[in-house]
Structure formats: C-alpha cells, structure tokens
Amino acid sequence: MWLNTTWFVLYVVIIVGYAVLDGFDLGVGMLSPFIARNDHEKRLLLNSIGPIWDGNEVWLVLAGGALFAAFPFVYASLFSGFYAAMMLVLLVLILRAVAIEFRSKSENPTWRKTWDWFFFGSSLGITLLFGVALGNVVRGIPLDSSGNIHTNLFELLNPYSLLVGITAVAMFCLHGAFFLTQKLEGDLLDRAKGLIPRLMGVFFVLATVLVAWTLTADTYIQDNFMDRPWTVVFPLLALLSVMFAWKLNTRGAYLAALLASGATIALLIATVAAGLYPVMLPSSTDAANSLTVHNASAAEETLKVMFVMAIIGLPFILLYTAGVYYFFRGKVTLDEESY
C-alpha cells in the first residue's frame, strides 16, 4: 500500500525536522560550558536559542503523536519496551525545559550555576538517550511474537548503541557550533569558531567507524542496499555534505556550513531509514516478529485521514517556522525579556 510507505517517509521527515532543528539547540546546551565563561556569556548562549528552542522541540511532540497515529504498534512496543529509558528521556526533557525557563529568574549565583549544569546535562542526556535508542533499533531488539519487548536498561547500553549515542553528541555539538557562529560576536564567536575543526574531526572519525561497523555487522542492512542500489545516494551525499561543510567552514561561509551540517544530519537519518525499510523495529530474536510499515501501521482509513491533515498542516508549519527564524535572525542581544 502506497500510504504505508508515504507515512514512513513523512515520519522520517518529522524525525529529520526534529534532529536538524532541535539538534543545534541541544548542541548549544552541550557546548555552553566550553564556550561561555561568565554569567553574561551563559545568558547570551541561552538566549541565542531562547525564542526558538520551544518550537524546535514541538517536532518531538509531533513525532510522538504521528507515531501513535500512523504506526500504533511501533509506538506501543517501542515506548513500553524501552520503559526505563523513556522515563529518563522524560526526566531530562522536563529538566531542560525548566532549566531554560528558571535559570535567569533569580540573581543567586548558586541557583544559576546549578541550572547551567542542568541545561548542559539534560542537553547531553537527551542526545545520548535518543542516540542509544536509535542504535538499538538499528541493531535489533528482542521483540516477541505478540510485539512485546523484554529488555532492560543495561542491555540497551551495548557498545554499538553507545557509539551511535556518542556520534550523535559530536554531530549535534558541531551543528550547534555552526549555529552559534550566526548568533555570537567577539571573543565568544572566536571560541565557537575555534571548536569547529576539532568537532568536525571527531564527528568524521566517529561517523566513519559507525557506518563501517553497521555495514559489516548488519547483514539485513547490507542486503537492503544491495537490493536497492540507488539508496546508496544517501550515504554518499552525506559524505559529500560533510566535505562541503568543511570547505565552507575554511572559507568562512558559516551560514552555508550550518545548512550543510543540517543536510548531513538529514542524510544520515535517511541512510538509516533506507537501510531498514520496510522494517521499522527489527526483532533480534526472530525476523518474523519484526514490525514493518505494513504489519505495524494503522488501518488505511486512518492513514488517509492523517495524510490529508499532514498535507494541510505542513505548509503552514513550514511557513511560520521560516517566518519566526527570519525575525529572530542576527546576533543575539540581551534585554529585559531575555532568559
């Protein structure tokens, strides 16, 4: 059914939207202790994402709702199967939201320092947890024949998944650093720029190891790329976009480099999606138990209704997201309403 595949693609688009947009503000959170040295600088970093982080995180809410609606079996199996990890995700999501909102509401230095650490720790935690979750999805999870996952937090923390988590951290830090070049001035800007080459190096090495590991260890993904050779364009374009970002960075074209690093994130996610399709949750115990876009989707009628809603809604979302970003463009300054 074309609707199932369409929804898979739409779902990947939502994940990409979340990773590309929230990716840089998570990156800013992770970089803040390394770039900002005093209260004023911390506030500049915080306010660089101040008016937009919330809109970015809505993509995650959308991802949750769309998964429930379009692929309810994946939603139910994944969320209940990763119960402990999901509770940690909720914990860090809440801590991050309140850290941003609460931090500058009091002048007390201990209060502010504590929330600064929460801002950093929760940004890191969210990135790591989502990376580890993605790693486990790619690697396969113990799904039984009724779609239930029996696992625990410690089994999820395997070397492969941890590598995916760490790669995500490097990727978002890099993305955040590119974003900050658009927002900061003076010393701070130099510090952000100074981090970029090192972050690129780390990310490039990690991503290369990860791609090599995935392709050699995972026969299912290998077979998929063999069967659909054209999908190799995704990893190739990802590589190209990294090289572009490097080139643009050395030329000082930071806005273009930010877009290139966004493209890298999108293409890497597309690579994973192309490698897995039509499977969404591979079972590590028996391939017959895997949840696919066909056996885990909502019924046709539901997918149709949802598709119409997405077609109506998405253009508006893109329009006002673009509008808001345009309005808040340029270097960040502090005023009375700042965080």
Binding site: G64, G65, F68, A69, A298, T302, F316, V324
Partner: peptide, 18 residues
C-alpha cells in the same frame, strides 16, 4: 492516535512557532 497527531500538527506547531 490521529486526534493526538492532529493536536501536534494544528495546535502545538502554532503555539510553539509563535
């Protein structure tokens, strides 16, 4: 699920954006 997804598409995005 479709009601929750509709909330995401039509409501949260509007709130979050503005």
């Amino acid at each position: 699920g479709s009601l929750l997804a509709a909330e995401g598409i039509f409501a949260f995005m509007l709130e979050g954006g503005f």
